[in-house]
Design a protein around this nucleic acid. Structure first.
Lengths: 199, 199
DNA sequence: CCTACCGATCGGTAGG
DNA sequence: CCTACCGATCGGTAGG
């Protein structure tokens, strides 16, 4: 009978290795070695290598939902709500960079059922963002001459790319990054005193 | 002696498969099968599987440079220059989605030498963007109370994420996407008639 | 949790 | 460009 703690260790070692080398370049023996075990010994705790991938992705998806859903359904003013959501989303990524990297990078290697569940959850998550944005548009906080769909894509793209370049100990804290990103996205990059010739 | 046309076919088939399944999940036999060849026959044209990955990444890097460098060194007004650069960068991604996907996703599996060259080229490319942004800031076109470094990251993040969601035949053309992204980034998401309470 | 092993598949080569 | 093969490594299992 597997005891939970050991399994958590295995999941975390797997997340670290999958994020560094990718799912397929990491062997079950690599994961076992990181815990000073023999390759076959892992199977006392897990059913398959794919189960590990699924558990990592599942957990990460949960982190995103736990961070954003309470905000989304709250009655905080829509601009403050979005500001906090940006901070929260970025926090999930920076708090467990390995898990986030696997979430964004390796989900394609899930079994078909797990992959479908993943895609479904991701769609739901994006809908939370679209709803917050539409709410802010209707409150007159965000401009209503843009499509909330592409606003959401822009926001999430800028944030999600973070796992490519963020490293702990860099010049900016997660909070400072979130602050700057939100400010630039909200206020725009254009100088307020300059009339730019956009078509 | 390999003749060039066949090699191009091999590279393109490899780019397609690498982008769909990833580098390590695609076998040399898969690539050969896509061209109705036997696995071993590829080695009349290539030296190794890694060479294929390198050629795909190399080509993609060249596309980005060819699209942006002439703009960067031109004396087009800085705002128009950036607008065109956004269009050009997005065009490179959408014009060869498979190559762009491999470029962003699979470069980690390059040999050490190739990986170092890749990282060097990417740094140079990002510097082109930083220089264009700094130029626009100094011309008073972009706000000078933000760091050009993070402006560049924001711009490139939003654009680079495109390969995750863009599919040909979608509702927006590459030009329409570029237009919207540039407009949203430049003008900001905030409603012009609303005073948002940012700290 | 280990030892010892399974069949399958991999990238790459020899020889034609 | 094909056939036939190489050693290495893979995920997973049996039996203890």
């Amino acid at each position: 009978m597997p005891h939970g703690e050991r399994k958590t260790q295995i999941i975390e070692a797997a997340a670290q290795l999958f994020s560094e080398r990718g799912y397929h370049t990491t062997s079950v023996r690599d994961i076992a070695a990181a815990l000073d075990l023999q390759g076959g010994s892992l199977y006392a705790h897990i059913q398959s290598k794919e189960e590990l991938l699924w558990l990592i992705v599942e957990r990460a998806a949960e982190q995103f939902f736990n961070a954003i859903r309470p905000l989304a359904v709250s009655d905080i003013p829509p601009d403050e709500k979005l500001r906090r959501a940006v901070h929260a989303h970025i926090r999930v990524i920076t708090d467990d960079l390995a898990a986030a990297t696997v979430y964004f990078h390796e989900w394609r290697f899930l079994d078909e059922d797990h992959r479908n569940t993943f895609l479904e959850q991701r769609r739901e998550y994006e809908n939370l963002w679209r709803r917050m944005i539409r709410e802010a548009m209707e409150a007159g906080v965000l401009r209503n001459d843009e499509d909330p769909k592409y606003m959401a894509i822009l926001l999430l793209s800028a944030m999600n790319w973070l796992y490519h370049w963020y490293r702990p100990g860099g010049p900016l804290s997660p909070e400072e990054i979130a602050e700057r990103f939100w400010r630039m996205l909200l206020e725009g990059l254009r100088s307020p005193v300059f009339q730019v010739s956009t078509s």
